[in-house]
Design a protein around this nucleic acid. Structure first.
Lengths: 183, 183
DNA sequence: AAGTTACGCAACATAACTGTTCCGTTATAT
DNA sequence: ATATAACGGAACAGTTATGTTGCGTAACTT
């Protein structure tokens, strides 16, 4: 039941609803569960949304590869998968867009979804430095920012025309590693 | 009057409202203009929003510098300024988040806001290739995607801690140009 | 089998936005 | 000065969500 409702919320958000506009009436209609039962379980929309975000957390892969490039591509792919999922992407977009209306939810999102990816990225970068694959003078925050941006922004703007999504992350990593200047 | 209402909408969106949740009652209250007058001028919320997006278009700077790095930094700064503006950033985020509910608006946003920046970026990249500042084998779409992502994503995730925003764009350009691998 | 828990259905008052209408007032133009 | 256009105020019915309550039923426990 819990899972059905959380799932229904994700469906509705994925279908175009907004955190503000989503009504518990909609959720009840969608899931076939009485509005009453929903009110019994969650005392506010915020609590329900919090459980939805909790359901979105997934374990990140371990950094098993020896190559920093490989590890970073893996992380970007994971993040990209998440962005590719219509429901979770829309949920994330809506949380960002309505951060002011749901500040706690936004914070939870940053802490449970964004931060872990960020942390793993930095770890991979640091290891890349240790094994001499990344120059030691590179700003970890800056590089991390660039890479995470690439996976997140892809959804926000549809400017990616004629870009092979399968290999995009790998090619972006190569681009950032090798640079675009002539040797 | 026209301008006052459009401005009021931007204020409200910037203050946390959603395209869906924003009511013309709110707009009337905010602007002090009677709800009646608003209905007379715009027959739907979509038309009003369309004018709001129109008000957000700004001319992009010409690519006057000789250096591709400089031109690209300039473009990223312009884009970053836009993202820094609380109202326009929120408007953009909301349009993306509610693309399904307002497909025409989303298309207009892509065409009038995103596409021009994208186009200018690619032009700058192409010139960089011509003058030998960028390797000819670099995929323009890929590079453009990475750079535009950086400016757009900055808003979506607040992972940018300890990053000097003033110089961030320049340093990102340098990072992408020079690469992170040891020479 | 009896008790507890969870659920669905229905109703309720309250509140908010919509779209439209009618009417009075204030500018603006010629 | 007078006609036209633009505006504000107020009211209207229709729709929708909220939060709560009462009641009947189904399932699960011991």
């Amino acid at each position: 039941m819990h899972h059905v409702i959380v799932d229904g919320v994700l469906d509705l958000i994925g279908g175009g609803a907004t955190l503000t506009s989503l009504s518990l009436v909609d959720v009840a209609r969608r899931t076939g569960i009485s509005r009453n039962s929903i009110y019994r379980r969650w005392h506010s929309k915020d609590e329900l949304f919090s459980d939805v975000v909790k359901s979105m957390t997934r374990p990140l892969p371990d950094l098993t590869k020896q190559s920093a490039r490989e590890n970073l591509v893996t992380l970007m792919d994971v993040s990209f998968d998440r962005v590719t999922d219509q429901r979770e992407r829309r949920m994330a977009e809506t949380i960002v867009a309505e951060a002011q209306n749901f500040p706690d939810l936004h914070e939870q999102y940053l802490a449970e979804i964004v931060a872990p990816l960020n942390h793993a990225m930095k770890l991979a970068i640091r290891r890349g430095k240790e094994i001499g694959e990344i120059r030691p003078d590179i700003d970890e925050n800056l590089l991390c920012d660039v890479l995470v941006s690439c996976t997140f922004a892809q959804s926000s703007t549809n400017f990616t025309e004629g870009l092979d999504l399968e290999s995009a992350n790998r090619r972006k990593i190569d681009l950032v590693f090798d640079g675009v200047s002539p040797m």
